[in-house]
Simulated scan of single mutants.
Amino acid sequence: MTLSQIWYTRCPVPTPVGLAAQLGLLEKTFSEAGITLTSIIDSPDSTIRQSHFNHTLEWSFRHGGNVPPIRARSEGRQTRLVGITWTDEFQAIVTLPTSGIRSVRDLAGRRFGVPRRPDGIVDFMRATALKGLVSALSLEGVPLDAIERVDVEIAQSVLADQEGQSLFRLKRRQAFAEEAAALLRGEVDAIFVKGTGGIAAANFIGAVPVVEFGFHPDPKIRINSGSPRVLTVDRRLADERPDLVARLIDAIRQAAAWAEGHPEETRRFIAREAGATEEQVLAANGPEVHRHLGLSLEAPLIDAIAHYKDFLRDWGFLAGDFSVADWVDHRPWARLEGKAVA
């Protein structure tokens, strides 16, 4: 079989894959191999878009938040973890100024809003909020059972986010909108937010931080769905065309190297990727974000993914357990080190 097309997808967040796409490096490196790249997440077909979350398409790769690929692997999906990026981002528990909550200890006895999406794909935003809550409470030794967790029901599936009049011709809805609305209605006392979307939502409703920990010195506090992010490929691509996986990694590394020398342009590209302003990117990711778009399989990064996998398992987000070490595929990196990219 002659391979002519590869599916790819990325989350609308800071990733070197997104940067490589905007710089034209992905298209260039694959076109040189006679391959056309087709975006999964931009497909008008929701059954195609679903692979962004469950990794069902053969001949595909994905870079972004780690909950969906971890869940897919726990379901037995035959994928390979070939790279990890750690780009820190704003993470916080926020409240309204009138709540009387000024510290993590003040959360005791109060209501924390946890999003709940419809069944169909793994509820990655719920997992993200819960990990944020656990991290925040651990900073002050507040027990989890001291907090009342209140579900914030989200009626629409994330798969429908590119459809409907309420988008007003935008690609995506405002992140954390339902949680912010619940906070404004007085149904909950505090919510978790992160990234540029979280900063935008908190700013819009006039929320104030209870605690921020996206740049905490302890990496286990910062670990969440987007910290770190993973690059995964399906098994067929990894096994039958390792040369293409090596090409992919090489293009991503070129993008990361470019970013280090172009801080302002990198912030601009990230803003375009995230649908945010450059000011929001600076606030959410910090002034050194251009230095944190690398890709590797270093042991601390693999350990971080294993740590979060265990959290997801313990909180019931996985179909079964698996070994992250066995998921990792070092072969394309070895191929690059041998200069056998073509």
Rank of each mutant, 00 (worst) to 15 (best):
M1T: 10
R10E: 12
P16W: 08
V17M: 15
Q22F: 09
L23E: 00
G24P: 07
G24T: 04
L25H: 04
L25M: 03
T29R: 15
F30A: 03
E32M: 06
A33I: 03
G34L: 09
L37A: 11
I41M: 07
D42E: 14
S43H: 12
T47E: 15
T47F: 02
I48D: 00
I48V: 15
S51M: 03
H55C: 12
E58N: 12
W59E: 01
F61I: 02
F61W: 13
G64Q: 12
G65E: 15
P68A: 04
I70F: 07
R73P: 01
E75N: 13
I84F: 08
E89N: 12
E89Q: 11
Q91C: 13
L96N: 05
S99W: 09
V104I: 10
G109W: 13
R110I: 03
V114F: 00
R116G: 09
R117Y: 15
P118Q: 12
D123E: 01
L133G: 11
L133K: 09
S135Q: 08
L139N: 07
L139Q: 14
L139H: 10
E140V: 08
D145G: 06
I147P: 04
V152P: 05
L159R: 06
D161A: 12
D161T: 07
Q162W: 13
S166Y: 14
S166V: 12
K171H: 11
R172Q: 11
Q174H: 13
A177W: 11
E179F: 03
L183D: 10
L184V: 14
G186A: 09
E187N: 10
G195F: 09
A202M: 09
A207K: 01
A207W: 07
P209H: 09
P209T: 00
H216W: 08
S225E: 14
S227A: 15
P228G: 10
V230W: 02
R235S: 11
D243F: 04
R247A: 07
A255S: 00
W258S: 08
A259R: 03
E260M: 11
P263Y: 14
E273C: 09
E279C: 01
L282M: 12
L282A: 15
L282T: 13
E288I: 05
H290L: 05
H290G: 08
L293Q: 03
L297A: 06
I302F: 08
A306K: 07
K309T: 14
D310I: 03
L312M: 00
G316M: 02
F317S: 00
L318Q: 04
G320V: 01
G320R: 14
D321V: 02
F322S: 04
A334T: 14
E337Y: 06
G338F: 02
K339N: 14
